[in-house]
């Protein structure tokens, strides 16, 4: 059975930072695995700027930030293995890793889980109506538009004003699409003030607070949503051909279910708690990587 001292799962900002820090702290046997084709996690699809201020002192796009993180990683001897899924972990510190053509058990001394977060699905909201095509999470839409060059629709309603929702409102606008409104059930936008300014106000995209979607219409493709104004209870139906959801992020630590609290396991970045900006997830992972790297160097 192959083994390593430190297994890091997830090569996004947190995983890469943890690996580099652990190496710098003296750990010389590090395997960094990632399920994606390329490292960087969600960053490669984040074509917008806003990353790296804390870490590199300037505002970078997602791909630029990834490139700098990878340069940092490249100066270490940590091994990076992409397209690898962690299927399970057992209490005796054996990870089962799956990739094309290979299934293997791997023994490790310590594991840092840096698996990030996932988007809350619209399915969780119990919204009435049909379940047609044309409903995307903001991250799904971002991947399809930015990485796959796809045209998703023309008349867009965005449900949720977290940062991803705001960024996608701008993205769709820049793609020449009509963002009818960004709907937010709270009294103010969920995302950071700078994103409200840069992504919504700068493009005169209507942000409608205290509203939510109550019903989805459309047989094959979504053709509209019924919106409720939460304060008055009034409802109206808005025609649209695309519904994008930005309902919040949920730490994704499914692989470690039932193992939380084990002394050989650390959680770093968004899988421990969702950070507002990637830099702070990376900074947290760097701290954890340094700590664990020191322990494993002796």
């Amino acid at each position: 059975m192959r083994g390593c001292k430190l297994l890091i799962v997830g090569a996004g900002a947190a995983g890469i930072s943890a690996a580099a820090a652990a190496w710098d702290a003296g750990c010389r046997d590090i395997l960094l695995v990632d399920r994606g084709i390329r490292p960087g996690g969600i960053l490669p699809q984040c074509l917008h700027e806003g990353f790296g201020m804390a870490d590199f002192g300037r505002e970078l796009t997602g791909p630029e930030y990834t490139a700098l993180l990878l340069t940092r990683l490249g100066r270490t001897g940590a091994a990076l293995q992409p397209e690898t899924e962690l299927l399970s972990v057992s209490k005796d510190r054996i990870a089962v890793l799956s990739r094309r053509g290979s299934l293997e058990q791997l023994h490790f001394e310590h594991m840092i889980l840096a698996t990030g977060c996932r988007e809350k699905s619209i399915g969780a909201l119990c919204i009435a109506g049909t379940r047609p095509a044309g409903i995307f999470t903001a991250g799904q839409a971002q991947e399809r538009i930015n990485l796959r060059n796809q045209d998703l629709g023309d008349e867009i309603v965005i449900l949720g004003s977290g940062d991803l929702g705001l960024i996608m409102a701008r993205r769709f606008t820049l793609e020449g699409k009509h963002v009818i409104a960004v709907l937010e059930q709270e009294a103010q936008a969920g995302g950071m003030a700078r994103n409200v300014r840069r992504c919504i106000k700068a493009y005169s995209i209507p942000l409608r607070c205290r509203t939510t979607v109550r019903e989805i219409h459309g047989e094959g493709r979504v053709c509209g949503v019924t919106v409720e104004h939460l304060d008055s209870g009034a409802r109206e139906t808005i025609s649209c051909d695309t519904l994008v959801t930005a309902l919040g992020l949920i730490p994704d630590r499914e692989a470690a279910r039932g193992l939380e609290g084990s002394e050989w396991l650390s959680l770093a970045g968004n899988c421990s708690r969702v950070h507002d900006i990637v830099d702070s997830a990376a900074a947290e992972a760097t701290r954890i990587g340094t700590l664990i790297g020191r322990q494993l160097s002796v």
Binding site: P132, A133, G134, R144, R148, N149, Q150, D151, L152, G153, D154, E219, G220, R221
Partner: peptide, 17 residues
Amino acid sequence: SAVCKDGPGSEIVRAEH
């Protein structure tokens, strides 16, 4: 762009540039 979610008219992607 011709792939459907669930039957005709449920194309997921409008077009591919």
